[in-house]
Design a protein around this nucleic acid. Structure first.
Lengths: 221, 221
DNA sequence: TTAGAACTTGACCGTTTGGTCAGGATTTGG
DNA sequence: CCAAATCCTGACCAAACGGTCAAGTTCTAA
């Protein structure tokens, strides 16, 4: 019987088989939820993607909603762990550039995580509004305060710090969520190349640093 | 019987009742597809949103797939009509600012259109790859050429023109697709205020014009 | 006024869906 | 080695799904 433990990926107090299967299922679920949303995803599709019979998915997670919740929690944990990057005493230019690089790494390496999150937001975020209103809001306010402090100290040019963070998010995540669009426009065959991500990263760093007066605008020819 | 005319919204050669109902259904469908994706949307939900019995939806559109196609075509037509904005001989700063304003107007006024499109992209764009690879690709190349021309003439600072357009898109559409996220972080109750859209518009214009050397970077205090 | 075209819709159908379960197989700790 | 715990899964079910249809109502143009 399923001992009523809310199954999550990082629960190390579990047996070997359990851990392996949960990981397999969550990975498959992330992919299927990313590509179909919660309502459009089927447990049968997740089972096939995971290479397990459907009943096995229900054995570990009970319901589709609980599995979705587990996937969401996993993604939020990943998000939060990638957040800590910006610190008070660092150099503005390198700190911003490092943060942009870290977010772009996530877009490149975990696009499905970003897509599940995007799906949830598009639908009005009924299941993650708590996270948005607390952890994320606090993170933005905390980091915006640091930027404002840098501005006050004259270490970067005045800029709307909160909105700068919003738009760094939108620019970095577009390369995960809407990859096909940019691949099509760039003439790639469905998938972007690593150099496309590198070029995008450099561009976003440029646009942000120029805006903050941390990188000179090249003179007009 | 449904005379085999591919029903679309702007078909003015139709009867009054037909036109009204098609409009009602497409509006409802856009909302339901935006919130659930193609697979997650149900014809019953669309019918209820439209205030019509389910059989009536099938009377006008046949299948869910055809209705989705009609909604998609409607959105693409809207997208393309909002594209023509950037012309060769205009002033770079005002042209870019006007384009950003136009895109933000769309995000504010037709968020569901943007969301349906976003859903389709997240899913890998199986039904709009043709549009991405032709019309959109050509538009980007055409407009990027104009930006490059401006740069050559010394009318703006050197910048990766294609990627500038990509990121203008990502920054403007985030305010439609992910509105709840920014509303939550800004402490609004689910919905953004008009002034939030205005502030975002101003910010995006600022970041773009600064990057292009078309607006001075304020001196550090 | 009237006949045909267009529209309406409750009832229905086959399929897919999320979820259950019993009974067997495998793993694990002592 | 054994027995208890855990894992496995084909078969099954009720509900929800996309779609059909026939019988009726309303509209329209002559």
């Amino acid at each position: 019987m399923n001992v009523e433990t809310n199954a999550t990926a990082d629960d190390s107090s579990q047996g070997r088989i359990r851990q392996e299967n949960i990981e397999k299922i969550m990975k498959a679920a992330e992919k299927v939820f990313a590509g179909n949303g919660f309502r459009g995803a089927t447990t049968a599709a997740i089972a096939e993607e995971a290479g397990l019979p459907k009943a096995n998915i229900h054995y570990y997670f009970g319901t589709k909603a609980k599995l979705y919740r587990a996937v969401l929690d996993d993604i939020i944990a990943l998000w939060l762990s990638s957040f800590r990057e910006i610190g008070e005493n660092d150099d503005p230019a390198t700190t911003l550039a490092d943060y942009i690089r870290a977010k772009m790494q996530l877009s490149q390496n975990r696009p499905n995580a970003s897509k599940v999150f995007a799906n949830e937001l598009i639908r009005g975020a009924p299941r993650i509004s708590g996270y948005l209103e607390t952890e994320l809001k606090e993170w933005v306010e905390e980091k915006a305060a640091i930027l404002d402090h840098w501005i006050e100290e004259g270490r970067m040019a005045p800029v709307d710090s909160k909105r700068l963070l919003f738009h760094i998010w939108s620019m970095t995540q577009t390369w995960a969520d809407f990859e096909v669009q940019w691949a099509a426009v760039l003439g790639r065959k469905k998938k972007l190349k690593a150099e496309d991500f590198d070029a995008a990263t450099d561009f976003i760093i440029t646009i942000v640093l120029r805006t903050c007066g941390l990188q000179p605008i090249p003179s007009r020819s």
